[in-house]
């Protein structure tokens, strides 16, 4: 079973929920955590895994053989990213713009274009206690996150309960991380920001036809609009984490909730059982 933990905006407590869910469930079932938030992978800060291997994620980028190239310009014309420039006597390759689609090498009438790997980031794997841990890490200054997310997703161990920490937002890498999961847990907070971003995220989940439920973080007594939205859209609120300075301080120090108070361990185990129940009732 693959459970994605997602949120429309950053900082709602997505990683808190993903890591605590992993820690609580690991007492009962074999668990794997995939950190697909490759721009800012933070789950390791709470799980403190030991990383035992790391694989570079590469995409194929063009290399032009100047002996064969006639500077006809076809490669530059077909490149959707405009990563090739042809000037008299020379083809310039801007590899950092390339998405690795291979159109240029296909199009080249002289077979002058071969492909070489270019590193975008890395996938790192290890263990945190009994939890199998995998994270993607995008190189700094790199714009193309998708291949790194894909590489992390490929590491899913279907013998385990897989918990995917998804990047915030509703963009392409998020959709990629959500593809093929069995259930999506949406983390939000009871503010106009939280409600707005939950609305956007819910649209994505509906588009992907994923069963979903909500966790409200920093819950307080005085804002009920998120609950009302969930009620209207038949989204169950499975857990509320109260607005509490002690919770915030624990988070600041990187101490998982389940280690601050045994009641949270019970709560997150219950959360897992609720997810299983909902996923079985509404298969995606």
């Amino acid at each position: 079973m693959i459970i994605a933990v997602a949120s429309g905006k950053g900082g709602t407590g997505k990683t808190t929920v993903a890591t605590n869910l992993a820690l609580a469930t690991a007492g009962e079932r074999p668990v794997q955590l995939l950190d697909c938030d490759v721009e800012e992978p933070n789950a390791h800060l709470f799980l403190r895994p030991s990383i035992d291997h790391s694989v570079v994620v590469e995409i194929p980028v063009p290399r032009v053989d100047p002996q064969r190239c006639t500077c006809c310009g076809l490669c530059a014309d077909v490149c959707p990213q405009h990563a090739l420039s042809v000037i008299p006597g020379q083809v310039l390759v801007f590899a950092e713009l390339c998405h690795g689609c291979g159109a240029c090498s296909l199009a080249c009438p002289e077979q002058a274009i071969s492909e070489v790997g270019r590193s975008l980031g890395a996938v790192e794997a290890g263990t945190a206690g009994s939890i199998s841990f995998v994270q993607g890490r995008l190189n700094v200054g790199e714009a193309f996150a998708l291949p790194v997310v894909r590489a992390v997703k490929k590491m899913a161990d279907h013998q385990r309960v897989v918990i995917v920490d998804v990047a915030p937002g509703t963009s392409c890498p998020v959709v990629q991380a959500l593809k093929g999961v069995d259930f999506c847990l949406l983390v939000t907070e009871p503010t106009p920001f939280g409600l707005h971003d939950l609305t956007l995220m819910f649209a994505v989940v509906q588009k992907l036809q994923l069963p979903a439920a909500v966790v409200i973080n920093r819950a307080g007594p005085d804002d009920t609009r998120v609950q009302a939205f969930c009620h209207e859209n038949h989204l169950q609120v499975l857990m509320e984490i109260p607005e509490d300075r002690r919770v915030a301080e624990g988070y600041a120090r990187g101490i998982p909730l389940v280690q601050t108070d045994p009641r949270w361990a019970v709560g997150f185990r219950q959360l897992f059982h609720d997810i299983v129940r909902l996923a079985e009732r509404n298969p995606g």
Partner: peptide, 24 residues
């Protein structure tokens, strides 16, 4: 730190970086 951030930063006169004292 991805594409939208790079597009936001390129050529601006000043960046104000907001952070908080959490491990993340």
């Amino acid at each position: 730190i991805g594409c939208p951030v790079i597009a936001t930063l390129s050529g601006v006169d000043l960046a104000l970086v907001v952070t908080e004292p959490t491990v993340s």
